[in-house]
Design a protein around this nucleic acid. Structure first.
Lengths: 349, 349
DNA sequence: ATTAGCACTCATTTATTTCGAGTGCTAACA
DNA sequence: TGTTAGCACTCGAAATAAATGAGTGCTAAT
């Protein structure tokens, strides 16, 4: 992604200056202001000419005649791409320690969202890792009372799920033991998509009169695997958007905050992010680039983390287009690597 | 809670009219408007006199000179108390069917919040039942891999919890079986506060060399029981507050929505509600009456439901003081009784 | 006890003015 | 040819003023 060669060095400097200034102040930037940038000793008039060019090229625009310039989406894009290239080779020395390790994944993720929001002043989200293409580690059926069995299913990564199964009959302890054995010997270590119809039929056959229970268990497995259903999304700092006037008129605020409350759209965003090529990198969506229409006036920056065994999740922040991309990307990277590390090196739950 | 006797019949009628009109329109109500109330044939002048009296008594006030009147908190209070008395004897014929039964409590509660929000246009919350003073129904330890045991704990009401326990040693199947037996025979059916120190000591003794594991399990039980930690709160329609101008200035909106995102304050509210005498009734907090300072400009209406075996939770709605109390209370009652019924009559999970 | 009538108040709306930051363009200059 | 000083012009934002009208309190008559 080479920087557009059609821009002279000077134009680039000016564009950068405009963007940086705008990020800081939130006000349109005028030629006069740019004059004061030490490294370019030019009169405002000259700068005006250059700005006119930049506007023609689509990198900046005026919110109205006789106002300073504001970066366009295209301008931001260029800026972010430059940032990315710079960062590429830079060694990110990590000041770790943002997260406390605890034994519940859920808590860590909740905390991650919170920390991220506190560090950036934007709205943040963290998706729980999707246990797709994952392996079954362990199954245990237990009789709870006369008509109920609880199936506990442990997936790779120690994700534990359970489901109550109603049974007409009461199973003897012995039979239950047998079923457990059958299920575990057959299924343990299997990845989800290895469980074929044939296998299921064979299992049921072996279960004999208890094939019905086996059916229920497999249904439970299927249900538990079902991704959409399962993805939890933790959010924090949604109200940070009130800090940015361009997002806090009733209309926008309501839309964005609704998205954070309902979470469906965030889930879509996560799905999209995970699906994209550029995994394990940082992704930046500016304005219309975002997959979620509600956020067309925002920028969205996401990163993918991996909790071992291919369980990927997304952390992301949503804020105004005039966002401190540099800081955000850095923070996101730090958190990402912390999450990557936290359970991979020293798995606990 | 008798109606203040110092109010003449006519004043009451007028007060009611003012409140009802204000609930509908959200505009201060003037004497002229009240004229049109068929049942009282009075000139605006007379009504003005009565209104002046009502204002002296503190039931209504003017947002500014030369505006109509608005009910004060005291006015609302009186109105709501009257409503309560009316409703007391009224047979609430329930148009059930708001909720679909599913096997996950969580889903039902989520849905409840959503339905409530959709039905009222206010912000809503539903707290998961607190499994305090509850009974242990079943415990199952299973070896997941060399160093990990998963403890599955089923509480009364079929709340299932689990916790991974790290063990240094590998337990033989046989020993595990013994431990399970020991735990279940000793603990099943016990209410939480029957598990005393003495009992714990005895258990550990019987467990012999595995007393450590028993210790972990009991820790897990304790942790799981811990109320605060556990109360989930589902919310919906927080952005409904944008529909009410009096709550949607940046300041208020931010505060209220933050409360809905952080949930801590809602948890406090729930605790308060559950602690209050008037359980299983409907509680109405108007303005300053609310236990949560963030909502001092709102009204909060809550109801307690019970998912069998003493597991109580709260459903509530938060909206502007000018709230359709009648509708809200009715909807809340319906939902409350549905929740009461849904798992009590025909327990599923 | 009720009401018609009137003067008065004050938030809200609309119109008018002022102000100034910033531009584009032209003409002069190195 | 690139740079710059200078100037007329634009237009949003803020300030000011005027018009509107819903609603009141009070008085005097019924």
């Amino acid at each position: 992604m080479a920087v557009d060669a059609s821009l002279s060095e000077r134009k680039l400097t000016i564009l950068k200056a405009i963007i940086q200034n705008y990020l800081e102040t939130g006000e349109p930037v005028g030629s006069r202001t740019l004059t004061k940038y030490t490294d370019l000793n030019l009169s405002s008039a000259t700068i005006r000419n250059e700005m006119a060019d930049l506007e023609d090229l689509g990198y900046i625009f005026q919110p109205h005649t006789s106002a300073g310039r504001i970066p366009s989406d295209k301008g931001y894009r260029l800026y972010v791409d430059m940032l990315m290239e710079d960062k590429e080779q830079e060694i990110t020395e990590r000041e770790n320690g943002l997260l406390e390790k605890t034994d519940k994944v859920e808590k860590v993720l909740r905390q991650a969202a919170k920390v991220l929001a506190a560090n950036t002043n934007y709205a943040t989200m963290v998706s729980s890792p999707v246990n797709n293409r994952n392996t079954l580690k362990f199954i245990q059926l237990s009789q709870v009372d006369a008509e109920q069995i609880v199936a506990v299913i442990v997936l790779g990564g120690n994700v534990i799920k359970n489901k109550i199964i109603e049974v007409g009959e009461t199973l003897s302890n012995e039979n239950l033991l047998k079923l457990n054995m059958l299920l575990n010997t057959t299924l343990n270590g299997m990845s989800i998509d290895q469980i074929t119809l044939g296998l299921i039929a064979r299992l049921k056959e072996q279960a004999g009169i208890h094939s019905e229970v086996v059916g229920h268990v497999l249904d439970a497995v299927a249900e538990i695997i079902h991704v959409e259903d399962d993805m939890e999304i933790y959010t924090s700092g949604a109200t940070n958007i009130f800090k940015y006037p361009e997002l806090s008129d009733k209309q926008s605020a309501q839309e964005i905050i609704s998205a954070f409350e309902e979470k469906q759209q965030l889930a879509d965003l996560v799905t999209e992010t995970l699906a994209s090529e550029n995994n394990h990198g940082i992704q930046v969506y500016i304005g219309d680039e975002t997959p979620v229409k509600t956020m067309k006036d925002c920028s969205v920056v996401t990163a993918t983390y991996e909790l071992g065994e291919g369980m990927k999740g997304t952390i992301g922040i949503i804020g105004p287009k005039r966002m401190d991309y540099e800081h955000v990307m850095k923070t996101l990277k730090t958190l990402q690597s912390e999450l990557d590390a936290i359970y991979n090196k020293d798995p606990k739950e």
